[in-house]
Design a protein around this nucleic acid. Structure first.
Lengths: 333, 333
DNA sequence: CGTTATAGTGCTCATATGAGCAGATCAAAG
DNA sequence: CTTTGATCTGCTCATATGAGCACTATAACG
């Protein structure tokens, strides 16, 4: 975006703008324009390039949502995602709840749009996902499946345990909630709970999922509900195994490989394998400390859509640039 | 600019914007983009067209002056001008002096830019031209030639008779003023004055002119200094001859043909033929009642650059559309 | 004065692109 | 269910375009 060698003259600027007008807005060919101005088509092309380069001609996007197209596209192609939505940098410092609300609203808009009546929707239990459901006003009548147990933190609303039921009420489809904690004390309790009628039924729905909304956590304090729910010993043990990211209590290392640790045996949550089978996984991750975790999860290839904010997107892209991920879908440089 | 059939979905909008980003900003080929998105190149082209059509992608111009590129270009090609500068519509109602100042500033910028030391510059005597000279801060040292006598109206500054000398002082070149009235009572007085040493010398410079700045007047009250300076009988007689426009006391009919009337014999001004020989004639015309006059003068092919305001440009373009002028230079539809 | 950068120009040829068409898809209407 | 029209799709082929190169001005410098 160097704007060196400014075009100083009004004459040239107007000519360049006129050419750009005819080319971009009126769709005339460079050949015709060249003839009309009595210059060569090469010159037309060069004037056009220079005008864009120097900012004389700007191409802008008017999206129905505050999304940064450039970052979206870079993320999408860097990790071979189906799509990426990057929230525009808002003026001024954003608080975390504000950011969560904006991310949630964006996710809500996306979900409302892409869901059809034949879908089976999974929701991980996370603050941003809860906020998203609050912003959903209507949805086709499809089943809503809870993907993991509830971890009541101090700043959670009571109604958040009812996220799944609430969204099912909006959609008019069946609700498959999990009334049980995300993290349990031991393996035996976990297995017992999984066999409970309601919970077993929900786990049975995992194979039918067509869309899932999850949140990306980083393996550090305050950036993952699971991390915060564990004791110091297990936190550290898992960290030493190289865990960088957590998605619905499933762990990933920096390369996006699923880590199998003891943790998997005492949480109520969809397995990494089942989650990977879901055709559309929408991942929310919205604060700069999570960049590394987002990078890790995207490398796993499990996520089809990422929703994040501009700052985090930028950081994540830097990580991608340092250590290019192998291309997934049809990606390009 | 119909914006019918809105693109309602966020998904499509983001995809379209991403495609536009890659195409316009990153300069990738549609073929590559198509491959990256797994769609056909035709679809890419259609998405791009639709995005532009629907306003999702906007192309904007950042000119160093407040100029409406679209109107410039339309005027330029409609009349086959070398260039046209159309002042952007400013918010709110503009008074006539404000408009004159803005037009003058624009003309000043243009003249400052295109004049070289080898030029010989002619200035018609008109309010807008005077205002232009006031806005000129520097100019190469070239001769400044007055093109017509002075018509002192009630709202003229005294110093306006010294426009030519003043500009010559700025440029450092010679001044060729005309100290005499534009309109004279009779032919004999006119011929006498023309033989006066100073005036004859100035008239002798007309053949050397390389650039001229003139103002376009309409043949109606308040829109032409010459019209206002004549008696009712002559005004009407000239109007009956079909005069629509006046440039430095030279008259044109609606088709841009020079009218030869008795007027030419009692004014001190460059002849239509001499003015036509000037390689670069910059015409100023800046109020909606002048649209018809501007249309007429542009049809004469005498003007190479027009400077006007957006409203007037619009009206003039409508006249051009109704009765397409024959193409002059390299023009196009 | 020649010499060397430094833009700027227009060329060729391989490639990208648009116009217009014909088949596919879909939804509303009969 | 068929019909009809509208929209969407990808095709062919003529045309427009870009990459890279060689040539020309122009300016900066020893």
């Amino acid at each position: 975006m160097s704007r060196s060698k400014r075009r100083p003259t009004l004459t040239d600027s107007v000519q360049a703008a006129s050419i750009a007008h005819r080319f971009y807005l009126r769709g005339e060919s460079k050949l015709d324009i060249a003839e009309a101005f009595g210059i060569s088509r090469f010159k037309v092309a060069r004037i056009l390039d220079a005008a864009l380069e120097q900012g004389l001609v700007r191409v802008e996007f008017d999206l129905p949502a505050p999304v940064d197209v450039g970052l979206c596209e870079e993320l999408r192609s860097a990790y071979g995602l189906r799509r990426a939505l990057v929230l525009e940098r808002a003026p001024g410092k954003q608080t975390r709840p504000e950011m969560r609300r904006r991310i949630g609203a964006l996710a809500a808009e996306l979900l409302t749009e892409i869901v059809t009546k034949d879908d089976v929707i999974g929701l991980a239990w996370a603050r941003s996902v809860n906020v998203m459901t609050e912003a959903i006003r209507s949805l086709p009548p499809c089943p809503i499946v809870q993907l993991c147990g509830v971890q009541a933190g101090m700043d959670m609303y009571d109604r958040s345990v009812e996220t799944v039921s609430r969204l099912a009420a909006v959609s008019g489809g069946d609700a498959y909630p999990i009334f049980g904690p995300l993290v349990l004390p031991d393996r035996r309790t976990t297995e017992t709970l999984r066999k409970q009628p309601g919970i077993a039924e929900t786990f049975g729905q995992f194979r039918n999922l067509t869309k899932a909304v999850v949140s990306i956590g980083a393996w550090q304090p305050g950036e993952s509900t699971v991390y915060d729910a564990l004791g110091p010993a297990e936190r550290e043990a898992i960290g030493k195994r190289g865990a960088k990211a957590e998605v619905s209590a499933r762990l990933f290392d920096a390369d996006g490989n699923a880590l199998s640790t003891g943790l998997s045996h005492h949480v109520l949550a969809i397995s990494a394998e089942e989650l990977r089978q879901v055709p559309e996984v929408i991942a929310l991750g919205y604060s700069t400390p999570k960049a590394e975790a987002i990078d890790a999860v995207l490398r796993s290839g499990m996520v089809s859509t990422l929703i994040t904010d501009a700052d985090t997107a930028q950081l994540t892209l830097e990580l991608a640039a340092k250590r290019p991920p192998r291309p997934r879908r049809a990606a390009s440089a």
